[in-house]
Design a protein around this nucleic acid. Sequence first.
DNA 1: CCAATAAGTGTTTTT
DNA 2: CACTTATTGG
Length: 751
Amino acid sequence: MAWKPPPALQVVFYLILTALGIMGSTIHYERYLNSSQLEAVFYNDSPLLVLAGAGSGKTRVITYKIAYLINEMDLNPQNILAVTFTNKASNEMKDRVNSLLRVNVDVWIKTFHSAAANILRIMGNHFSVKPHFTIIDQQDQISIVRKIIRDLNIDPETYQPGKYAFLIDRAKDKLFNAEEAELEAFSTDSVFYDIYKIYEKKLGNENLLDFGDLIFKLTRGLEQNEQGLNLLKNRFRYILVDEFQDTNHAQYTLLKKLTHPEGNICVVGDEDQSIYGFRGARIENILSFSKDYKNSRIVKLEENYRSYQTILTASSHLINKNSGRFGKKLYTKKGEGEKIRFCRAFSDRDEAIFIAEEIQNLKYHDGYEYSDMAVFYRMNAQSRAFEYVFSRLHIPYIIIGGLRFYEREEIKDILAYLKLAINPMDEISLRRIANKPPRGIGEKTVDALVRSTIEKGYPIYQSESEIHIAPSRIPLVKSFLDFYVELKDLVHNTYPPQLLRILFDKSGYIEWLKDENKEEKVRNVYELYNAVEEYSKENQSSSISEFIEEVSLNQGGYDNKYQNNRVFLITLHNAKGLEFPVVFIAGMEEGIFPHYLSGESPADIQEERRLLYVGMTRAMEKLYLTAAKVRKLYGKSVERGLSNFVFELPEELVVFNEEKGTNNNGLIEDNTCGINARGFFQRRLGPQYLNADGEKKVKREPEIKVNNRVIHKHFGRGKVVEVENGVAVICFDDGKKMKFLLQYTPLEKEQ
DNA sequence: CCAATAAGTGTTTTT
DNA sequence: CACTTATTGG
């Protein structure tokens, strides 16, 4: 770790160094970078592809490279664009660049989507994008599609809105508008084209852009407007891309437009960490980079600074099962480290208890802090068991993702008022708040209002003729529109917190929540107010529309400023880019991980495998994998087999333990878990799982051999066709072929 | 038009 | 299980 002087001293240093004109030589690249990293930072003669293994310091390379470009190559910070995929990553990179250069630099370090949105805001006129567009999220997108499907008078059961929204996104990833999608036979489902066409028209009419549009409209715009393209090429003289393996076709095309085929681009990626195929990411981009950019240089980073060798060996062994890789050999100087531990609990709650207990042990006996430890899972729903157990055992935790703050109903409502004030064509927002709180403007009335305004191309407060609504509703609508006009006139030039106070006051929204006893929601709305206030303090001249822009693009936003020393509960997808001394990966069951909806094709399984690889390589010191025999999901308990991935780990590097639940239904009474008088976790039973030496390993049914006839409690009769390393392959009489870990499988020999 | 209630439903990952 | 949508009666 580099020593960081206190802020006041930093300023003094900076002033002295700048005055002496030696600021440029104050970064000791050689001291903090290894030889491959140095090469990646210094090389600028042609396009550069950095293949950076997990934990090999890729963020470090990007931050030092930005510093190098500014200090050594005399590039103006404004001429540099660095793109990442998540806000988390871009914030971290910003912090690291600023602290390296000891000054807040004016480099654009943004996500793809926010960079595109910013460009479209500033110079949308070049790309036929109207100003003041509203960015819609996935929920909005689906509800628009749902409405289209209903209007088409087709059954939303067979024509699922979510599915069509998904297809629209994928088409945009491939740079197809509705017409082109049809010409190119993008889908075999002809209804899709009708839906996409109407959707496209509706968004255009209401001046809405979905996430895909941000990239699509900009890329399309660059193809059609040379002036705009030149302006941008002039502005961005060097582009750096993080997590390049996650780019989709549209994003890659955008990059190719903005850069020269012979230089000024550096992409950093790892084909083994591509986990966003489901949203159009093309792992092939990383493979075709060398073809598209002539004379490009490839630098591999293979020294890992994060994990012990055992973790690297095990994860490499796993990922070696994938095909289509460059291949790499990660190594570390940190030494062997401990074995990976695997535990299968009886129920999902037992699994959480096992992890909770380990966490307490590690904290009280091994000196780990809560914030050193993280639990990863495949889907957000799995966090429930941990929340339940952790809160009863007083283990502080923070959930990343999950129910997001800005996706809460009350927050979206308040934002909808503001979005509508900015964009009077935004039907989605209008429908959201027209009758919240109830003011006698129901669906029919809104329909009538929309028909004579938005659908005819007028803002909602203006119409060419009388609006045909029931006479009893006229005064109600009129007073709503009066309020609306007042808000609209204030929205661009009122101090945002002031604006919110007026909104709360005149809409009656908070009063309504209070009347309904929605205390939690009231608190959240005030929380939003606090966020706006804080934002306004930090960005004095910004209007509310900039705040909204930020939160629209910061879907998973979390603030760990006040969340110190908590265990992280996080999905594997969100865990990318993070690292923890201790990592638990929960739910290692077939159907959960790999997830049963992820598909059965080799490509899908490979992506799931990469996801596990990402998870494992987050661990610095200790890694646990856990599973439950019985998992309660949507009310029902289901028994599942172990994830096949468990069998893909090198057996000699894993210690297998087993923990059992108390009773047959896997339920644990509340009062059986708790903290005892000395402040330690009190377990329900004595330790049943085995120690780390694995000596007490009880071999179950050791006599099971090839060609034995066996009976499985659930799958019935079958024949053993293979036994190796404690794993048996059994071919059941109904034709099913399955693998089992003998130690945990209740098998009887058939007499 | 609205609130309450009943029925039903669908379950991944994210910008 | 938890959440959305449909139905009903006021």
